[in-house]
Design a protein around this nucleic acid. Structure first.
Length: 954
DNA sequence: GCTTTCACG
DNA sequence: GACGTACGTGAAAGCT
């Protein structure tokens, strides 16, 4: 052991009383008083920041009073009996002390029937016996009895105290100065003095001066009391004799109980770089914005030594190869797959669980039979505690190709599923142990479905990576945040590939058929690598200014989205089937017509063949396009042809629409119905879109048709269960509202404040008059602005010449100079820093913003103009989602289920009777979602509808 | 595995 | 001199 252990014991209960009286009466955004909590939080922060200092803590715990009753009341019923109740605005702060402690990931000791002082004494002595140093963070005079040195088993242990309010260390000298006696005699002095606050009687008329004098003269309390007989006659002599029993009782009351049972071993208190629980979330909740800023500026956080260099920010364009992603690799041994254990007995598993509980952080990975978390069977799981300290626990492996249910299949030795689940459940559900995973939402859902385990709390390396590096990496599978890529990029390690283990294509085998040795190497490596990535990435989070967005927005969303995926939504299979049939008939008819008109049979679905038929054979005009030299036949081209009288173009358009609806929706959605639940369960990606939006796959439920009449037929097939309704809540014009706020456009802000139609207002400003045409044009221009405009693009949309479009753009900028400034400033900032930022601090990187390739550069510029707006909107609805279920529960609406998110819309299913109450809760949560972190200059409008289908709810 | 098209916000 | 022109997505189909 290089350094001496140093335990800090924080006397939380005493601190809050002092902080309450010394700090101004702050309240948090909800109106709860939090002044004392604020003081407490800053104190913990300061302590944790000393982590790497010479005299700083290696171990820390907070000790709180559990109840007002203790064994002292049994000895003396009057003990603390005249203590008044704490002030009214202090009472609600007690539970918050516990939350604050948890936010710092510190152990919190609260035992019944003893006082905090007794637990502090017990732990201090226990540590001292081990030869540790101990600092008691308190200024309670009773605790001064403990100060001093003692020889323990492993060297000398020293106990001192720290008064954080006076920033003073208290050691033997200071105790002597206060009491005039050494620490071991303090109890005797206190016994004579008594204490009116605690109602300790002492000897009436004896105060600190006399008590000290008596103890100094006579050695200790007994000596002083015995000496009373020989004193010359005085009031003091009488009182000492008369009140001898009171003094002796007091001596017992002030003696600290140093042999309490230890609810947790000392080793649990280790500060081993274990990161804090959602500290940022806590800070934001209570409006501690100055601390939040400190967290993000990286100027000290509890899990991070302050001697790390602050984040190096590139001042020029960002290069994905050199910026940020390359950090010196921590000093871990290389991945050694032979070090992994295959756990095949319950004894061994229990050993792993015990060690994981002590480690307080464990990487977890599940192996299953399917990529779909709602259909997968659990085949095994792996755990990792430290680099190379990882195991795989097989549960459903077998040999032979008869499938996992084949009763003749041979099964290698494995722990019985239920026994294994019972063994890991306390670990995976423990509040005190953080579970880390790569895309852990998947594992949460698999474990809940297959094992009945509700895994929490969690961290996700994929999301940590995304929040720091969105846009930095070339997007591959997982948007550049897949585990294999992260391992290559950050650890220089090449993972075993799934296909090396299970094969690929037709020859692929389920994971359950993989032999245990190979399965162990693969599965345990995943957990090992996840653990290493976590250590690496999580440390960078505050340095990169991404801690706030991770802790307050994305991390809280993981269990929320996991639950939405499990809920799924009901679709009317018969209705979809009827539509499929109808589309099949119609497309067959149109196909014949098209072939007849073309004079040959060809594949209409092939753009290549279609282009040749239209432009070569039939001689319509319409240039080549693209490097492929192929004709373009997209909607715009076909509509032009149609306008010039080509009836075949109309038919192709209709054919295309119907075959799209059939293949992508009416057929595919029927396939997607889960046989167990009878509902459709999408999978949301939290790292799918560079701007911070969610994306939806398998199936994509964020692009269900709505814009056309026939498309809306599909929406009608999304239905509630009997007795329920669907409720859709939409943010109205949220991106334009945010643009008005962010670009500071008074005219637009006024329009939103007064509820005016925003496109009409734009038309009024641009054209001077409002009619159908000018409003439509204004709407196009409004959106064009959000997306980063070009004269050609706008010209194409408005059907005017580029010169004229440029005039419109100029007029717009003239009328709304804020918009032009916003675009200019955003681009300048992105060019300088390499990233854009949302109002909530989400960063998106644009490595090509300074590219010499014009096309690349301009593309990045348009995306960079849009990202802060689209991203802020995404942040807001995510915040609303994270708060939604607790808000509904608080309102007594536990049966309301949140099913879908479509960027600016949330879809719920609820009992008919709950509609009115739920609507007002949902509206409020969504409308107030930006607060308290951001106060917008515009209101957030929310439109709510309900009905017997998703279509009807709009 | 890439390209084209089109569904959504 | 040609390119390609609005931001963000995912799925299906055809083709290489």
């Amino acid at each position: 052991m290089a350094d001496k252990n140093h335990l800090y014991l924080v006397d939380g209960s005493a601190y809050i009383f002092r902080a309450y009286h010394r700090l101004p009466p702050l309240t948090n955004p909800e109106g709860t008083p939090v002044g004392a909590v604020y003081g407490y939080t800053t104190m913990l922060w300061k302590l944790a920041d000393d982590l790497d200092k010479a005299d700083g803590p290696t171990h820390m715990a907070v000790v709180l009073d559990k109840s007002s009753h203790s064994f002292r009341n049994d000895i003396y019923s009057e003990y603390k009996a005249n203590r008044p109740d704490p002030p009214e605005d202090l009472q609600p702060q007690f539970p918050l002390i516990r939350d604050a402690t948890r936010a710092f990931s510190l152990p919190c000791i609260e035992e019944p029937d003893v006082e905090a002082d007794d637990m502090i004494a017990t732990y201090a002595r226990a540590a001292q016996r081990e030869g540790w140093d101990v600092t008691i963070v308190s200024s309670d005079k009773d605790l001064m009895q403990l100060v001093g040195e003692e020889n323990g088993a492993n060297g000398t242990g020293r106990i001192d105290m720290l008064d954080t309010m006076k920033n003073a260390r208290i050691y033997i000298e200071e105790v002597e100065e206060k009491f005039g006696v050494p620490p071991e005699k303090v109890g005797d002095v206190l016994a004579l003095m008594g204490d009116s606050v605690d109602n300790i009687p002492g000897v009436y008329g004896v105060g600190p001066k006399t008590a000290t004098k008596l103890i100094v003269e006579h050695g200790d309390l007994t000596g002083a009391l015995d000496a009373a007989e020989d004193m010359k006659k005085s009031k003091l002599k009488e009182r000492l004799i008369e009140q001898r029993e009171n003094a002796e009782l007091s001596r017992v009351l002030v003696t600290l109980k140093e042999d309490c049972d230890l609810p947790q071993p000392l080793s649990d208190f280790k500060l081993d770089g274990v990161p804090p629980e959602p500290l940022a979330e806590f800070l934001e909740k209570h409006g501690f914005s100055s601390l939040l800023r400190r967290l993000d500026s990286g100027s000290g956080s509890p899990d991070r030594p302050t001697n790390l260099n602050p984040a190096k920010q590139s001042t020029k364009g960002a290069d994905p190869e050199t910026d940020g992603n390359r950090q010196p690799l921590p000093d871990w041994p290389d991945v050694d797959r032979s070090a992994y254990e295959c756990v095949q007995t319950l004894d061994r598993l229990e050993e792993w669980v015990t060690r994981a509980l002590a480690a307080r952080l464990v990487a977890v990975d599940t192996e299953t039979s399917s990529l779909d978390a709602m259909e997968a069977d659990l085949v095994g799981f792996s755990l990792a505690l430290v680099a190379n300290d990882a195991c795989y626990v097989p549960l459903g492996h077998y040999t032979g190709s008869g499938g996992s249910d084949d009763m003749f299949a041979e099964r290698p030795k494995q722990i019985a599923r239920e026994a294994a689940f019972a063994a890991i459940k306390p670990l995976l559900e423990s509040d005190a142990v953080i579970k880390v995973g790569q895309n852990i939402k998947y594992d949460i859902n698999v474990l809940l479905r297959c094992a009945g385990i509700a895994m929490a709390p969690v961290h996700d390396t994929m999301i940590v990576s995304f929040d720091m590096d969105a846009g930095r990496a070339e997007s591959g599978i997982g948007g550049g945040h897949g585990m294999d890529e992260l391992a290559e990029r950050h650890l220089g390690h090449t993972c075993m590939k799934f296909k090396d283990v299970c094969g690929t294509g037709k020859k692929a085998i389920p994971f359950g058929e993989v032999p245990l040795d190979k399965a162990t190497q693969y599965a345990a490596e995943d957990a090992d690598v996840t653990w290493r990535l976590y250590q690496h990435l999580y440390r960078r989070l505050p340095l990169e200014g991404a801690a706030q967005i991770y802790h307050t927005v994305d991390r809280p969303l993981i269990p929320v989205v996991a639950r939405m995926e499990r809920e799924g939504i009901k679709v009317d299979r018969a209705a979809l089937s009827r539509l499929s049939e109808q589309f099949a008939e119609t497309t067959a008819r149109i196909e014949k017509d098209i072939h007849a008109e073309a004079g040959e049979e060809f594949t209409i679905g092939s753009p290549k063949q279609l282009g040749e038929v239209l432009f070569d054979k039939m001689g319509y005009k319409g240039g080549r396009k693209g490097k492929s030299g192929q004709y373009s036949t997209d909607q715009a081209v076909l509509e032009k042809l149609s306008a010039s009288g080509a009836t075949i173009a109309d038919k192709v358009l209709e054919y295309r629409q119907l075959s799209k609806l059939k293949s992508t929706y009416t057929d595919a959605l029927q396939e997607a119905i889960n046989p167990d639940t009878g509902r459709v369960h999408t999978s949301y990606s939290l790292v799918g879109a560079q701007t911070g939006r969610l994306s939806s796959t398998d199936p994509n439920l964020q692009n269900i048709p709505i814009r056309t009449e026939i498309g809306r037929e599909i929406r009608k097939a999304f239905v509630p269960e009997d007795g329920n309704v669907l409720l859709a809540a939409d943010y109205s014009q949220i991106e334009l509202r945010l643009a008005a706020h962010m670009a500071d456009v008074p005219e637009l802000k006024e329009a939103f404040a007064s509820g005016e139609d925003i496109h009409s207002r734009t038309a009024k400003e641009m054209y001077g008059e409002v009619d159908r045409d000018t409003r439509a044009a204004a709407k196009t221009i409004n959106f064009a602005i959000l997306y980063g405009i070009s004269r050609w693009g706008l010209a194409g949309r408005l059907g005017i010449e580029p010169d004229e479009a440029q005039e419109k753009i100029d007029t717009y900028f003239q009328r709304f100079p804020g918009i032009q400034n916003y675009i200019h400033e955003t681009l300048e900032s992105v060019r300088a820093k390499g990233y854009s930022e949302t109002l909530f601090g989400r960063k998106t990187w644009f490595p090509r913003i300074n590219s010499k390739n014009q096309q690349e550069r301009q593309g990045s510029e348009r995306a960079a103009i849009n990202a802060p707006i689209q991203g802020t909107s995404a942040d807001i609805i995510k915040r609303a989602m994270a708060r939604m279920m607790p808000a509904l529960a608080d309102a007594g609406l536990p049966d309301v289920r949140m099913l879908l998110q479509v960027h600016d819309e949330l879809v719920f299913e609820l009992p008919k009777g709950d509609v009115e109450a739920a609507s007002s809760v949902i509206e409020k949560v969504m409308a107030e979602a930006a607060q308290p972190a951001v106060t917008l200059d515009v209101p957030l409008g929310v439109e709510i509808g309900t009905g017997e289908s998703w279509d009807a709810a709009h």
